[in-house]
């Protein structure tokens, strides 16, 4: 900005604007955001940007199986990241796999967020024995590792993208419930909520218009990190053979299917999907870290 006239009124900054400005302060975070945009958009645009539809079996040629990265088949199609044993282009498989991974990560997080928000709000606002029971449940669930709970749930539910989403939602809701409850309890004691109550505003108005917006920042931070967590967890479950079905492979599935080839030196089938997974998770974590710093200076480490 050039030297402003001293008489001009101070620039009004909305919280959102300040957030955006502060977020772009960190080059690493901007890099993370850039990568994330790249990852998400390639997943969304998969049918248009993937060189091949990896699941149209008629397009696959067993003759171009296990080609190393950069080689071309007889028709001159280049397999930039190599191909798998069925002659599937790995780059296309990764782009489609990203779709499944992101779908599972984002939708399970969104559902868990919604459930946790409602449960946490009820716990904080109703209080008493309801609160105690809910938080006891949350404590017990959180004392067990997520992977174990998800594993058992999937053992019960069976394979399937929808089932993985359900299992991951069940695993995650408790984090949000706890976060929302503690944030809501802090906000509830603040004067503006008391003021709203004194004005005899209806309860749901107090909750929706006053409590909720102020509980959102910590929740957004937790949710960002949880998306990355959910994506990794899904990959792990699929690797263990209890996640998504073969017909709708995620990145984890792709990695697992390349495991055997890896031992014989055909690294690309596992390594490239792994790198894609890593880039996705790192970019989300970088964005999440910066959001935490910007939204809540107290959490800074």
């Amino acid at each position: 900005m050039t030297a402003a006239a001293p008489a001009s009124a101070p620039k009004v900054q909305t919280p959102l604007k300040r957030f955006v400005v502060e977020f772009f302060d960190s080059r690493v975070a901007v890099l993370g955001l850039g990568l994330l945009v790249l990852v998400v958009s390639s997943a969304l645009l998969a049918p248009w940007i993937a060189p091949q539809d990896p699941y149209d079996l008629s397009k696959l040629d067993i003759m171009s199986g296990m080609l190393p990265p950069g080689s071309a088949d007889m028709d001159g199609n280049v397999f930039w990241l190599g191909s798998d044993e069925q002659g599937r282009d790995l780059l296309s498989a990764i782009i489609y796999g990203l779709r499944t991974s992101l779908l599972v990560g984002f939708s399970s997080t969104a559902m868990a967020l919604a459930i946790g928000l409602i449960v946490g709000m009820i716990a904080a606002y109703v209080g008493g024995s309801t609160d105690a029971t809910i938080m006891r449940l949350v404590d017990i669930q959180l004392s067990f590792p997520a992977i174990l709970i998800a594993l058992i749930l999937l053992a019960v539910l069976g394979k399937g993208v929808d089932k993985v989403i359900i299992a991951l939602t069940a695993v995650q809701w408790a984090y949000y419930a706890r976060t929302v409850r503690s944030a809501a309890l802090v906000e509830r004691r603040k004067e503006y909520v008391e003021a709203a109550q004194c004005l005899a505003l209806p309860k749901q108005r107090v909750v929706l218009h006053h409590l909720l917006p102020n509980c959102l920042p910590p929740l957004i931070v937790v949710a960002t990190v949880q998306v990355a967590h959910a994506i990794t967890l899904e990959a792990t479950l699929s690797f263990l053979g209890v996640g998504v079905p073969v017909t709708q492979p995620s990145l984890g599935m792709l990695i697992a299917s390349g495991f055997d080839y890896m031992l014989s030196g055909e690294f690309w089938v596992s390594v490239f999907p792994g790198l894609a997974l890593l880039i996705t998770v790192v970019s989300i974590n970088l964005v999440g870290d910066q959001m935490r710093d910007v939204l809540n200076p107290r959490l800074q480490h």
Partner: peptide, 22 residues
């Protein structure tokens, strides 16, 4: 340490096998 948080365990395990065993 951020990388360590982001790396999927099973994939790292595979890379370790590839590097140190294979």
């Amino acid at each position: 340490s951020i990388l360590g948080f982001s790396l999927p365990t099973f994939w790292v395990g595979m890379l370790l096998i590839m590097a140190f065993a294979v």
